[in-house]
Structure formats: C-alpha cells, structure tokens
Nucleic acid binder design. Sequence first.
DNA 1: CAGTGGTCTAGACCACGAT
DNA 2: TCGTGGTCTAGACCACTGA
Lengths: 265, 265
Amino acid sequence: MAAEPWAVDPSSDRPIYKQIADALRQRLDAGEYGAGDKLPSESELMQQFGASRATVRKAFDVLMGEGRVESRRGVGIFVRIPPSALFVLRDTDRLKRKTWGANKHSSRRRPFERDAEESGARFRQEIRQLMEVPAPANVARHLAVNEGDPVFVRRRRISLDGRPAHLGDSYLPLDIAVGALRERDTGPGGTYARIEDAGHRLSHFDEQLTFRMPTSTERRALRLGPGVPVVDLVRIAHTRTRPLECFVAVMAGDRYRFAYEIPAD
Amino acid sequence: MAAEPWAVDPSSDRPIYKQIADALRQRLDAGEYGAGDKLPSESELMQQFGASRATVRKAFDVLMGEGRVESRRGVGIFVRIPPSALFVLRDTDRLKRKTWGANKHSSRRRPFERDAEESGARFRQEIRQLMEVPAPANVARHLAVNEGDPVFVRRRRISLDGRPAHLGDSYLPLDIAVGALRERDTGPGGTYARIEDAGHRLSHFDEQLTFRMPTSTERRALRLGPGVPVVDLVRIAHTRTRPLECFVAVMAGDRYRFAYEIPAD
DNA sequence: CAGTGGTCTAGACCACGAT
DNA sequence: TCGTGGTCTAGACCACTGA
C-alpha cells in the first residue's frame, strides 16, 4: 500500500506537500469523498505517502485555505459541507419601496429580512451599538459631510437560521437620525421606512461590492471557516438631492449570493 | 530586546503563533509598516519573541492567509501592496446598449473594455478556446437547453494593464452562435452587438455573484497572491422571450469593484 | 483508553537575491 | 558569499473526542 499510482515523486520540482494536496484534491474532485466525509487521518497519509507529519499537515493546510476541508479536533479532517442555504439577495426586490415602503401594498420588511424569509430562513437582528460617532473618512465622503463630523451609527449583527451572516453598520447624518431611528427597534420597514416617514423620498441606492479575506476578529464574529472570504458592501441611499444613509457591511462570503437584474437600456 | 511590551505569554491559552500574528497585525494596523515595507526577518522575530522558526513562520502564514503580507524568496516578507487600481464595473454603463450597441451613439465597446478604458487601463483579450461543447448542467439550466446538448463556447482570458484579471466563458446556443460569433474577433461591440445584428433584441441581463477561494489552477492562471478570493460571476443575456447567452467568469477578487445603481421603485 | 488533530522545538538542506 | 525564505524530518507534549 506504499506505492500507489498517485504516489509522490520526491525528485520532482513540485514540493511534496503540494503533490499530496494535488492527490487529495483529485480524489475530492473525483467524488471519492463526498461532502461531510472523513478523509484519511494524518498518520494514515504519512504512511501512504511516506512523508513526515508536518508535510502531510501542510498539504491539509493548502486544502483548508481553499475552503475545501475542515478539521475537527480529536475526530478527523472532513470534506467541507457547503452552507445549507445560500441566501439570494435580489436587487429587484430587497431595495424596492414595495418591500419596505409605507404604502399599503408594501410588505413592510427590512431589505435583508425579506430575502431571508423568501429563502425560508429565520431572520434575527442583534443591535451591537447605537451611538453618535465621528464620521470615518469613507462614510464622510459618501454622506457629503466632513471627516470627523458627528454622525449616528446603528451597528447590528444579522443572523440567518441562528448563524451569523453579516455585520451591518448604518450611518445617518444627525438631522436624519431622529425618533425611531435612534431606537433599538426601528419598526416595520426599518430604516428606509422611517426616513420616508419623515418626509424624504428615496430615489435610488448605490451599491458597491469588494472582496477580501476576513480579519481574525471578523472570522470570530461571523464564525467563518478557514478559506472563506468576505464581501465588503457599501450602499448609499439617495434622494434626488442628497445622500441620506451610508450602509457598510461585512458579509460572510459563503452565505450570500447577490443577484442583479440590469435592463439593456 | 527580548521582553518588549508585546512579548508573547507562553502560559496563555492562545497559541504563540497567533500571539505573534496578533502583535504583527497590530503593528500593521498602527501604520508602523506601510504598504511595500519589509517586515523583520524570520530570524529577527525568533529572537524578539523567543520562538522557534516554525512558530514564527506559522504566524506569517496567518497573515498571508489574510492577504496582508507576501513573501519574496531570498529577500524578505513585505506588507502587501494593494493592486494599483481597482477596476470598477458599473451596471449603469457596461451592460447598456449605449456601450455595446449598433446605433450611432454607441461607443461600440465590449462591456469590460469600456470599464477598463474608463479606469485608464489597457484592455487585452486572449482567446483560449472557441468550440462546441456539451452544455454543463448550470449552463444548460440557464440557457433552457438539455444538459449535454451542444452549445458554442468562447473562452477567454482578460488582462488589464498586462495582468490577468478574469477568465470569462461565453456560452451560446447553436442557433445564435453564427458568423462572427464563431470567429476570434467578434468586432466592435463584441458578442452582444453581433447578437443584435442577427435581429434579436436584448431586454435585460441577470447577473449573479458568489465568492470563494481559488483552486490552485485558477491561482496560477490569474496570478493571484495568497489570501486573494475570487468572484464567480454568472450573467444571462435575455430577450423578452428567451435567454441568448450565458456568461460565466472567474474574477480576481482584488482587481474588481462591482457597482450597481438600484432605483427605489 | 486509544486515536485524532493542534502546537512547538531543533536541526537540516535548498533555491534565490543582493552584494 | 551571506542572509533570506521554502521545504522537510523526527520527535515531543497537549487537548479533545469517542468508544
């Protein structure tokens, strides 16, 4: 059992740990191991490949960095189970007045709440902070205020089906942050509904997405597995004349799918 | 020089390599090292923290996995320089008929070509494959054909300023893939312009984004640094009555920013 | 209890870049 | 040539899981 067809070639330029990772990846791709299956233990692989433990572990590190496997201490290393549901965020729904607006045809839900329920997930919002802060540089630019000027921020953590899904901070200019917008519960329709209650009329949203690996803090807060990226979302809510809100979120990359419908004209 | 304030605590529950990573991360956040700066060498850190080389290296591995530092063999470890430009892809422009259309007000550019030039980048398209293939499951579903039915695929690699930025595959039903759509150069306006030349009228695009770490193959093809995720983009071009194209791309997560403008109504 | 993965050490040889 | 990071080994102790 020592010299399988996929045995490593010590004379190759390619490092042994990468060869082992390649071999394992190939077995994964071939469906030899399915989602949730246990891979051979480190000691088994040491024998199979005739490598030291550190080398075998390094091969596993590669696959973990790719988000393909994950380890359970005292048990083994397993093929990663993709999140049971990928929550689809649709621009054609979640940001429309018919979702959050105050009129009688609206479902009066928050943008994320709507998409969550549409996917059959339990939506939970947990307020982390509710306070005035000096505007950070990027927020200031988007809200057309000076950096350091006081703005009101609502920091929350959203969970879907009991698992954290994103950290979302909503920044409001002080003249907008009044009444329910400073309370824990903003009520039906959420922030956007309250903004319109105050007589403003939202015209459109600018949404931008960028991508990176999480910091260790974010990894903890979102309970991210190894090899899972995050999406930085920045969304500005506009009236025809001015920006009224800057929403900044760090979202678990393995829990969301973004969907946009774009007219050709 | 052995017992700095940020020295590690061997009695702590937190592993030494994570404490070292924390200390380094803190120095990075504090701006002690700027983009492109060289960090202390492994042997220096071994002395500073009184740890073995393997432990110091593991700390660096953590930061590399976060995409914050990168190593140059024979030289040192450096603070990662973010890509000089983040190319902004705007739904309000790139997918509009005024960009790619055949009328005389159109700029007659490909969607990505437009955004690249707008950012002042050199756009280069390299055809990797041009052939009929059996439709993969996801493509078949989107194009409303049966899995395995022949479709025509245009596989290309797009580079911006000489660096690869994404791998994009355009799948076309056979009745659509005629004339210039089977040639290397589809001409001004690209695929969408040729589709409309044939008498079809595109109404809208459905675009979906998901996120993950690259495979080792993709890492090579896109020349991705460690700790850089990719975006899977799937875009379906529709007429009012049927889907005409399925575009599937793997995009370097550190080179693109996606921007969408969403009306409130 | 035995087996698993998690951490850490000490030492070795190598390829590479700068000088 | 020297210092850098890249790979690899052999061995150790630990914490955890499951039988």
